[in-house]
Design a protein around this nucleic acid. Sequence first.
DNA 1: TGAAAAATCCCCCGAACAGGTGAGTACAGC
DNA 2: GCTGTACTCACCTGTTCGGGGGATTTTTCA
Lengths: 207, 207
Amino acid sequence: MDKIKIIVVDDHPMVIAGMAAMLLQIPYVVLSATAGNAFIALEKVREQAPDLVITDINMPEINGIEFTAKLKKEFPGVKVIGMSTFNERSYIAQMIHSGAEGFLVKSASKEEIEKAINSVLDGKMYLSLDVNLNTQERKDLKNQPMLTRREKEVLLLIADGLTSPQIAEKLFISLNTVDSHRKNLLAKFEVTNTALLVRSAIKSGLL
Amino acid sequence: MDKIKIIVVDDHPMVIAGMAAMLLQIPYVVLSATAGNAFIALEKVREQAPDLVITDINMPEINGIEFTAKLKKEFPGVKVIGMSTFNERSYIAQMIHSGAEGFLVKSASKEEIEKAINSVLDGKMYLSLDVNLNTQERKDLKNQPMLTRREKEVLLLIADGLTSPQIAEKLFISLNTVDSHRKNLLAKFEVTNTALLVRSAIKSGLL
DNA sequence: TGAAAAATCCCCCGAACAGGTGAGTACAGC
DNA sequence: GCTGTACTCACCTGTTCGGGGGATTTTTCA
């Protein structure tokens, strides 16, 4: 059997290096490419046709979730394992929803990584053991609101302390529109005021 | 001149591996030990008498800040570089206060790590370039506002999504008083609305 | 090309927030 | 006893938010 071809995507060189070192110790896999962002990653996937992509979730420009969605659309056969640090578990649900087969925390050991790779290539799903979700967190996970482009913009400006009128001016839209987005944000996050909105957004890693 | 002896402390094997790979490429340093937590790290330091310790800041049980403080007390000569991921810059000030000479973000490149090591061993302080404390952030760090007991209580309740009337009821005080505290909070954090208040408080680690 | 999703805009209304100013009480430290 | 700080409360004003509708135009994408 051929070696399993893996591509690792992460904007932290240190993580890339660490993952590379760990994968080296697994005889039946080969790291066929690495990428520091989603654009490069997509190119590499087209070139290399890997069996598995291990991708960071928090990346600038295109995050791991969108990246996974794009990747899965173009290459449904490629398996994906998401990776994230401790406090950002909140993305897991979205990641799974985007089609990822596995999830690892960055604190994973070589053994765990190996197990994840095997499970996923076996057609099974793998979730890092560290992902011990308490009920509240699980809730936060499920209800990861799907925000539209505009909603994200508005959310950012709210978190930057702008008032609705100021946001309206900045985005060249009417106050009514800002209010609409604002209400949609509150609804999607299932909160009733700005304080909780900002807090939830931060917890979800959106800010 | 002898090689520079370095000990790396991080609870993420992947980061350890990555750092090890990077340090390997720097000819005049040697990684004399690694540790997954502060206890082991202290042992290793006693054994190895390293020149430099590179430690994660976020670790279970004993965090990097306490660890640095302990380490510096026992071995004042050992240089320390703190390491953290992106969003946790708020610890930098505490880290420096504990005696660390440098700070790196985990997204650091090999070049940056090398520069940090050189600076620190040269007796200079090194702060990761990514830690471009813009004036606002620097302010956030310095001006950790001195909150009174009551103000903290109110702040917590605000962040929990309670409205002023609800807070008043909960604390058995009048709405006017809650408003007073609220205004004092806004003033102390130098912000003008609740969104920024919550955000600042989280950034300052108060929530 | 046609349906669905997103973005835009409008109205009303009451509640909550933010800014300013002032002031009484309680308590700790000097 | 004086001083400073925290905590409490009050009044007034205008702005912003939040909740409830409904409606139209782009955009997106199957």
